[in-house]
Simulated assay, not measured.
Amino acid sequence: MGQAQQAPGPPLRGPGKQRSNPTPKAGRNLPAATAVGLGMLFLVLGGLLFLPLGFVLVTTTFAVFGVWEIFRALEAAGTRLPIIPVMAGTVAMPLGAYFGGSESLLFAMLISSVAVLLWRSLEGAAGSARGIFAGVFTLAWVPFLISFAVLPLHTSGGRTPVGLWPEGVVPPGAWQIVTLLLLVVSNDTFGYLVGASLGKHPMAPKISPKKTWEGFGGSIAGAMVIGVLACLFVLDKPWWVGAVLAVGMVAAATAGDLAESMVKRELGIKDMSSILPGHGGVMDRLDSIVFASPVAFILFSAVAGT
């Protein structure tokens, strides 16, 4: 996410055969990317506002697909990820965060890490250190971080419904997650628009040559507008809270995007997969959200009394 554009980087291999059809200057199929992005956004927002457990299940599904993509990429690079305990932890963490809060999330992370250690140790010594490190790293990177997007649903009055919101009232925690998603989308959208048209100075040319400082500035400006509007009309917070949230979300989302780009370059791949038309893989969409979720949780907790 946050695709501020510059000159294309060195050619990388993708998960399959690369398409030969021309793409726009932005480097992706805009109609397909827009349709898929809006579909995902409506699916997630629908769960948040009408069926909270549905949102948790959608989040868990995205995490499962993301972990599977990482498993395939690592396996192609010669690292065997202990997929069974990692997948079990991927399912357990968002559900634990929803029903049990932060304590359950931390406990699920701990148990999953121990399970990875024991599972990989029983498979033999060859490559065990890399496999264990990769397993714990994947657990921390995807399901643990993204579960922070679920925590506000538990902390809002301590209610964790399995059906519709009680009395049809959407709690503040759900609106916080809506704001998080809008800020991440605005980071992507405004950074992409400004970077594609004005981007000239790469932020990290060795990691992501298409991400520019101009695009980063566009992300901050656009996210500030969205953040201020969300605080005034949705969250009932002072306008400056929206500015703080915007800067925090853009910084975290950009760090997540660069982190995934670094991992992909290390593995020698262009996209994690091609499952989402116009986007690449699920991890190519989650890269910003997984870093932004814990930052949003911390910032909302810090400004809770304002």
Rank of each mutant, 00 (worst) to 15 (best):
A108K: 00
G135C: 07
A115N: 02
I84M: 11
G218S: 09
V114L: 15
A97D: 00
W119S: 15
A73N: 11
V282H: 03
G268V: 04
G163R: 01
T59Y: 13
L43K: 02
S156G: 04
A253R: 04
A129I: 15
G27F: 09
R130D: 13
A140Y: 10
V282I: 15
S261E: 02
H201D: 12
S301I: 07
V247W: 02
Y98G: 02
S147M: 09
L139R: 04
M224I: 15
V228M: 10
L49T: 12
V234T: 14
L105D: 04
K17V: 11
F233Q: 08
G100H: 09
V194I: 15
P94Q: 08
A88T: 14
T306S: 14
T23C: 09
P161C: 07
A259Y: 06
L182H: 05
S20R: 10
A115T: 03
P24L: 12
G215H: 08
I177W: 00
P166D: 05
L245K: 08
G278K: 01
G47Y: 04
F216D: 02
A174F: 06
S102I: 15
V194Q: 01
V263W: 00
F50G: 11
P10Q: 11
I289A: 13
K17H: 11
L183E: 10
V169I: 14
L198D: 03
A129K: 14
T23Q: 15
G242E: 06
V282F: 11
H201I: 13
L245N: 07
A134D: 07
S186F: 10
G227S: 08
V86P: 04
T138K: 02
I269H: 01
W68M: 15
P94L: 08
D271W: 03
V185P: 03
G78H: 08
I289R: 00
A302P: 06
W175M: 13
K211C: 00
S102D: 08
G78K: 09
T59V: 14
L12C: 13
L110C: 12
S219W: 07
W165R: 00
G135Y: 01
G101H: 08
K17S: 09
M272H: 07
T254K: 00
A126M: 10
A196P: 06
A304E: 12
M93I: 11
A63D: 05
G39S: 09
E214Q: 13
I83T: 10
A259E: 05
G242V: 03
K264G: 02
L232C: 07
G173N: 00
L245A: 12
P85C: 05
D257E: 05
S261T: 05
M203C: 06
P294I: 05
L258I: 08
H279N: 11
L258G: 03
L106Y: 06
